[in-house]
Design a protein around this nucleic acid. Sequence first.
DNA 1: TTATAGATTGCCT
DNA 2: GGCAATCTATAAT
Length: 219
Amino acid sequence: MDAPATLSAASLRAAPRLPRDFFNRDARTVARELLGKLLVRREGRNLLAGRVVECEAYLGAEDPAAHAFAGRTERNAVLFGPPGHAYVYFIYGNHYCTNVSCMPPGNAGCVLLRALEPVLGVRTMAEARHVPIVAAPTLAQRRLISSGPGRLSQALGITRPRDNGKDLTGIGSDLWFADDSYSVAQVRTTPRIGVAKAADRPLRFIITGNPFVSGTRVL
DNA sequence: TTATAGATTGCCT
DNA sequence: GGCAATCTATAAT
């Protein structure tokens, strides 16, 4: 039912990176297929990784909730560039949110990453989040690491100065998506979280039943 | 130049 | 469940 709790660094290195064509499609398609993939960060010789369990699609000119809705600005310029690049923005004075651009240049779709299940480098991610390091963390404690868009960005050290505009499909990139052939049993869609406009559109995608999805009640 | 809302989080009651 | 924190982009003077 749940994804594997851990993953070896060797198998992660063997997992193919998602190519640019993967992102050169409608944001809804990319969001759905991104579920179950791994977001990987290389910190020197150390690898950090989390499995995507929740994300949201943002469209272009036809989506009032999207940053690209009002057109190209210095802030959102990445969205209008080629697919497979990181769009990182700062929000509420405290948090970075991580997106990946979709669609060909000129089309501004993107996918916001909202929750990861930590699978490799968990201790390092917990330290980055200032989450207590304990021998046998509870589910509630593990959820604090990367369940939420601001949380997962902090866990992987993703910031706008460091990562905005980065090519996530580049060979030399220190941030990328990997496919370890994990199979997602069922995908559920819901309205997007925290948006006032176009609040009725089912553009949030989650792995049904995964406990690391944000807002999940922990018993 | 000033005001306000925001793709959030964490602490308080 | 309520709400303050804290900064940026954008709208309103």
